[in-house]
Design a protein around this nucleic acid. Structure first.
Length: 154
DNA sequence: GCCAACGTTGGC
DNA sequence: GCCAACGTTGGC
């Protein structure tokens, strides 16, 4: 059982959208390291913190809720769609480059956990998302960090 | 909107 | 295989 942090922009697809839809395919990941995590290490039943980047004063950057991985990895179909912004001409059905999983809504946090708090919490020392310059949109979490954020978020 | 950090591309 | 140029991410 693995724990993850998934970055998204609230204005693009946030926890409220996931709550409404109940389930979505997490497409559009175009980074090899993130791709490898999805393809190789994500499995049904894993839990994922939903993190909103590029926050505002009212809704600061941070963790807003919880989702659950409900499929194994499969080819992200947006890579084959010429009209999609995530189209990749180097990818083919025979040789897909990019993968996605389906994420189900679990809950929205009563108390979202802002990045500013994550950064100063000694319990979360070493967490990847608090390290400067880190742009990875799919991040593995150690259980301790996952449980602590869960406790803070409710 | 700024800009630092960083991943990717492509010429050599 | 190096590395400069470029584009993107994302905190502020």
């Amino acid at each position: 059982m693995n724990y993850w942090l998934l970055k998204t922009e609230a204005s693009c697809y946030g926890i409220l959208d996931l709550q409404k839809e109940k389930k979505t395919s997490w497409t559009g990941i175009r980074n090899y390291q993130a791709r490898n995590f999805i393809r190789d290490d994500m499995h049904i039943g894993d839990l994922a913190l939903i993190y909103h980047s590029n926050g505002t004063k009212e809704n600061p950057t941070g963790v807003y809720g919880l989702g659950k991985i409900v499929t194994e990895a499969y080819p992200d179909k947006t890579q084959f769609d010429k009209k999609d912004t995530h189209y990749d001409r180097k990818a083919s059905n025979k040789n897909p480059l990019w993968f996605c999983v389906d994420i189900a809504y679990v809950k929205k946090y009563l108390h979202p956990v802002p990045l500013s708090e994550i950064k100063i919490d000694p319990e979360l020392e070493g967490i990847m998302v608090a390290q400067t310059g880190n742009r990875l949109s799919v991040q593995p979490l150690i259980k301790k960090h996952f449980l602590h954020i869960e406790k803070l978020g409710k």
